[in-house]
Amino acid sequence: MNLIRYQAPDSAPWSTLDRWSSLRDELNSFFDMPFWSGFGRAGQLFTEWSPALDLYESGDHFVAVVELPGMRKEDIDISLHDGTLTISGERKRESTNGETAQRSERYVGTFRRSIALPTRVDASKVTATYQEGILKVTLPKAEEAKPKQIQVN
């Protein structure tokens, strides 16, 4: 069985009331119906994986923090092009030999997040760490974009 979850990255508002919670389950099971999977890409519209991204800014750098639980480091791609940071990756479906999915909310497949940085960054000094399922990308600002103190003579 191929259970597909419709896009609901933030399920909290639904969970606060059990009534809504069961409604959400009903909606989920509606989208799990074969009818939707038959639509191919149309079905994917509801299943897009969009991990949460936070952006911090300080005087000399930006830090992007992305929630990517249960990934392998090698499956995460980070690129910088024209001042836009793009983080993409793929989570492969694990073998399903003799296994039956009973409830499937975790996203499988690819994701892609892009964020336009407000100022120029030094692409050669970008660093990234991945710990506890959280990707942290540090992007130092380009020299000309750093705040400067100008002395009056």
């Binding site: 933030d10 949460a52 991204l53 936070d54 952006l55 911090y56 800014e57 830090v63 923090v65 929630e67």
Partner: peptide, 16 residues
């Protein structure tokens, strides 16, 4: 959670 300490001001937030 033990979220990583990040230096700077939050300019865009999606996480909870």
């Amino acid at each position: 959670r033990s979220l990583p300490a990040v230096e700077g001001m939050l300019v865009h937030r999606e996480s909870r």
